[in-house]
Design a binder for these strands. Structure first.
Lengths: 210, 210
DNA sequence: AGACTTGTTGGCACTGCGCCAACAAGAGGG
DNA sequence: CCCTCTTGTTGGCGCAGTGCCAACAAGTCT
């Protein structure tokens, strides 16, 4: 499992060391919930003294937050669909694209994603909530842009953020439970996103206010 | 905040004592996340020795699980709509009822609910996951029954469980963030549930298999 | 009132965390 | 090539929180 500790005491440039510890910790947090991963274990895995982890991240929570931040933003940021070449594309096709994009980008990390997010312990921490919200909001903006809707309307974003809750739950049903196939998950998310768009547009035109 | 410790050492029948500790712990867990609540604090609040909490619940996780179980099942079990008197009611009206029922039953506990559950809604502890799944599945069954659909089709339940993810997220946008009004939340959930029903029915008739 | 049941207590041993003073790896000047 | 200075790194200390258990005593039964 662990090699005979590659060269203890070896000096590394701070960035590298930081990154190395972060990688090790990331794997551990992806495999086991927050409380069951000890700082000692992170240090041991990284071949480093316990104190060094605290030195770089201050706090166990600190290193967790950094990992969480990456895990949340990573699927959002990677290969977003270029918004330029979508001018003539009809709404229904855009919805299809949004769903496919989401399922594709989530699939590889899905397993570990839930473990990191689950975090039985610190789930409610306001800082954690902030990071999660940030990720959800960014994803909502991307989605609205891809759909050609106004990403600045706060109620629209709220609706899409809420939709995000279903998107995650659907992935869960697909990847974890296996209760849905990818095709079923896709169909469900597609149909529902169409309904969300319809509701958003009704809200926007019908009541007219921001 | 805390009274001058009502009668220490007083003997109570196990059920009562257990219930009392549970109530105190429940309030604490509703106000602050798991890690930040100590067994000592639970004991102090209940006016009881630390050891007694362990005696009744074995384990800090043990008492948390019991509270979680209640928090998850409570909104599901309370005043479910009597399924008998729904024979002539059209689907759209049933959907309205389902959404109202959900929002009504969740509203009072919403604030503490999210603290106990945590932000993401997905916990990693297998036991925690089991409890959450159980609650979601029960809610999905109730919803399907209320809608007059087959609650035994596993894909239907999966779809409604996924919808539950959006329902929770929507409540979050309404109660916590304030980004949606109750009316907007209602409209959104109603329209989306209609779409989910449509997808379920298409899946059920179109591909026909269980 | 005495003895017995059992709800209750408080301290012990252990684990994991954050901190910090001392250490030494490696670069740079003489 | 050695000495020095910077700073990445170490390991142990004190503390907090947990689970356990043997002693204790409240209340009951005879």
């Amino acid at each position: 499992m662990s090699l005979p500790d590659v060269e203890r005491g070896r000096r590394l440039p701070p960035d590298e060391r930081r990154e190395q510890i972060l990688r090790c910790a990331s794997e551990l947090f992806a495999a086991r919930p927050y409380t069951e991963v000890s700082v000692s274990e992170i240090a041991r895995t990284a071949g480093v003294a316990r104190g060094l982890v605290n030195h770089y991240f201050g706090d166990k929570r600190g290193i967790y937050l950094e990992i969480l931040r990456r895990a949340v933003l990573l699927p959002v940021l990677e290969d977003a669909v270029p918004a330029g070449q979508l001018d003539g594309v009809p709404l229904e096709r855009r919805v299809e694209l949004a769903v496919s994009w989401f399922l594709d980008s989530v699939e590889p990390h899905a397993a570990s994603y839930f473990t990191i997010l689950g975090a039985g312990g610190v789930a409610e921490d306001p800082e954690v909530a902030r990071i999660l919200d940030e990720g959800d909001d960014l994803a909502a903006r991307r989605t609205l842009e891809l759909l050609g809707l106004d990403a600045e309307r706060s109620t629209s974003r709220a609706a899409v953020r809420a939709y995000g809750g279903m998107a995650k739950a659907t992935v869960r049903e697909w990847v974890r439970t296996g209760a849905l196939t990818r095709e079923q998950a896709h169909a469900l998310l597609r149909d529902v996103l169409m309904a969300v768009v319809a509701t958003i547009e009704a809200e926007a035109s019908g009541h007219g206010s921001r």
